[in-house]
Computed example of a mutant assay.
Amino acid sequence: MQEDVKIKLGISIGDLNGIGCEVVLKTFEDSRMLDFCTPVIFASNKTIGFQQKQLNLNIKYNGVQEASKAIDGKVNVVNVWKEVPNVKFGEATEEGGKYALKSLRAAVDALKKDDIDALVTAPVNKNNIQTEDFRFPGHTDFLEQELEGESLMFMVTEGLKVGLLTDHLAVKDVSSAINPILIRSKVRTIEKSLRMDFGIRAPKVALLGINPHSGDNGVIGKEDDEVLRPVIEEMANARHLVFGPYSADSFFGSDNYKNFDAILAAYHDQGLIPFKTLSFGKGVNFTAGLSKVRTSPDHGTAYEIAGQGKADHSSFREAVFTAISIVENRREYLELTENPLKPQRARR
């Protein structure tokens, strides 16, 4: 591939009543971003024009009918719909979910056809996006259905990476959902991602305990001793650099996390509360394990500030840079692994 061909970055616009459009537009208000990628927003010219006017932004954009027609050096908008949606900033409406889903489906279709190289998703409302044919608790599960591979919710920054054994699952169902097959699968997925997507040759992974104090030798639950420990020991014997289970309450506060390339948490809040506490505004949600690259910011629709021009676009911008980096890392990884004996040009 020629070095002057920029990565085409697809963007689903999220809930129009939230801050999705705002963080997208603020990110590309800086024209220097066009040096790194060619953005392709899945919405409509009228929708983007309306949002710009409401938010007092001024970004020149190029309307196209399909992502394959996107032009380098410009912010491109694929016209997914012709009508003008009724935007009610700060409200969770059925219409807001309808157009978020239209944007997402169009973007994923372009991703599957290789019309875009990666996807960055703006936040959706998990309730109003539900339809008869869309019954998913979030982007991750939908993307696993649409793309090849086994998904892993992977929250990443430069110095902290947290994956989840279970993601959008009720706490009461967590322990019964964790079994040896799931643990092995998630560990292998996180190891492969660290190698392929982040260039870490020998990744070290820590697993957090399911119960408080990792069960305290069975006093507070037997799952850690009966499910987690045997699999960790088995994988360690097979030369995987896997360690644990660690008591989650002290793991992050003691800075133990810095000794590992990634941490695998048992459930959503166990991993995301410390991650967002340490990295909020810089964190990125990456769907690892799939054939295509998808990232998103580490926040939601933020209805309480929608339409007011107050949204911080730092996390969305990080999601853009992370997607670009992962695409480049994957391309280099594939070159190295497909042609292991071929001399490689040194990185500049």
Rank of each mutant, 00 (worst) to 15 (best):
E3Y: 00
V5N: 01
K6I: 00
I7N: 01
G10N: 06
I13R: 01
I13S: 02
G20N: 05
T27C: 14
D30K: 14
S31K: 15
M33I: 08
F36E: 01
F36M: 07
V40L: 04
F42P: 10
S44W: 10
S44K: 08
N45K: 11
T47G: 04
G49L: 05
L55Q: 11
L55M: 08
G63I: 10
G63C: 08
V64Y: 09
S68Y: 09
K69F: 06
K69W: 08
D72V: 02
D72H: 05
G73H: 11
N76F: 11
V78P: 11
W81S: 02
V84M: 14
V84Q: 03
A92V: 13
K98E: 01
Y99F: 13
Y99T: 00
L101Q: 00
L104R: 10
L111N: 06
K112G: 08
K113S: 14
V124A: 04
K126D: 06
K126F: 14
Q130L: 05
T131K: 15
E132I: 12
D133C: 11
D133K: 15
F136Y: 15
F136E: 03
T140C: 06
E144K: 12
E146C: 15
G149R: 12
E150Y: 14
M153Y: 00
M155K: 04
E158P: 05
V162M: 10
G163I: 09
L165W: 01
D167E: 12
K172D: 06
V174Q: 13
V174M: 09
A177R: 15
I178K: 03
L182D: 03
I183E: 05
R184E: 15
R188G: 14
T189E: 14
T189F: 01
I190G: 03
M196C: 11
I200W: 13
A202C: 07
K204H: 09
N211S: 10
P212D: 10
G218V: 08
I220S: 10
G221M: 05
K222F: 12
E223D: 14
D225W: 02
E233P: 09
E233L: 11
M235D: 12
A238L: 14
H240G: 04
H240K: 01
V242I: 15
G244F: 06
G244L: 11
Y246K: 11
S247K: 09
D249N: 12
S254T: 15
D255M: 14
Y257C: 07
N259I: 00
F260I: 07
A262L: 03
A262I: 04
L264A: 15
A265V: 05
P274D: 02
P274N: 07
K276Y: 00
T277P: 03
G281P: 02
K282T: 03
K282H: 10
N285I: 03
F286G: 07
T287I: 09
T287D: 09
G289M: 05
K292Q: 11
Y303I: 11
E304Q: 10
I305G: 12
G307V: 09
G307S: 04
G307N: 09
K310E: 15
K310D: 11
D312I: 13
F321D: 01
S325R: 04
Y333Q: 00
E335L: 00
E338K: 01
N339Y: 15
P343N: 05
Q344H: 13
R348T: 05
R348Y: 03
